[in-house]
Design a protein around this nucleic acid. Structure first.
Lengths: 148, 148
DNA sequence: TTTCATGTAACTTTAATAGTTATGATTCGG
DNA sequence: CCGAATCATAACTATTAAAGTTACATGAAA
């Protein structure tokens, strides 16, 4: 399978939307994200289901954020996207009859579970407001660099 | 992409080999692992490159372990397999020009790096001898259950 | 009513492993 | 030395889920 970059995509989209007051169309976002508007709609639809964004059709329509940036964590976004599988590596059979394979699975499963728990805990600590602040810092640094 | 189960496959194979003194053929292993002998050869070849197993052709040929079980960690096996990508999730561009995307990547990359470090550290602590001992426990438990 | 925008179905493309088929190259027993 | 056993490897196909594309329907507003 291809690498799942939907979390990255929605973060990128949300931060661009956060920099504006007006709604952004799927076409606008697709240009920012260098992808296709249908991919934007399809992916953002998960966030709409979760109540994080709203979409409107017709003139002056598009996507806008309905949640407070400081209350939306990466964990919530991951969950909104349907909690996709995090690991590209794993065991072959979920419930093997072979005792050897059971021992292998037990070791791998426990280790992957620990890493996943750490990852999701960190995701729970990072909000859109944090990313937005980080972007502001990067932007200020760029401006200062160009105008010393 | 399909899930990468090569680490699982080689662990399963190595533990079966550890239970025997004679070499096991690719066909034997393929039967144990419920897969194809060519898959076994292709995957075990990485471990041969790393000096963990040896293969012999012709009569009485096959695969045997050349390393001490207590010195081979899951981390070494992961490395021997070419350090395949662990995560099915990730960012879209490694070095984006967009500052927003840079902020997104920074947050994701750091979090994934932490989780990967934990995973690899745990893999470094687990040896084939550990898994073999776990299998022995499971086997003893099964025997006791059947002959109370 | 025309235009702008989302909603969505249906399809192709992508990328990497898993699985299969076929053939060549060794090794050993007889 | 011949033939069976076994690995080595190339060249395919199958699998899988996301990404991307095309096409058209739906709804809102000027």
């Amino acid at each position: 399978m291809k690498r799942d970059s939907r979390l990255s995509l929605v973060l990128h989209a949300l931060l661009h939307m956060a920099e504006r007051d007006d709604p952004m169309t799927s076409d606008d976002l697709a240009t920012c994200l260098m992808t296709n508007p249908v991919v934007v709609r399809r992916t953002m639809a998960f966030l709409r289901e979760a109540g994080i964004v709203a979409s409107a059709r017709g003139h002056a329509g598009g996507w806008r954020i309905t949640a407070d940036l400081s209350t939306v964590s990466l964990r919530q976004l991951h969950d909104a996207l349907g909690e996709p599988a995090i690991f590209a590596v794993g065991h072959r059979n979920a419930a093997p009859a072979c005792l050897v394979e059971q021992a292998v699975n037990a070791a791998l499963d426990q280790t992957f579970a620990e890493a996943e728990a750490l990852l999701l805990a960190r995701f729970g600590e990072i909000t859109l407001a944090d990313l937005s602040a980080d972007f502001a810092l990067r932007y200020a640094a760029l401006v200062q660099q160009k105008e010393p």
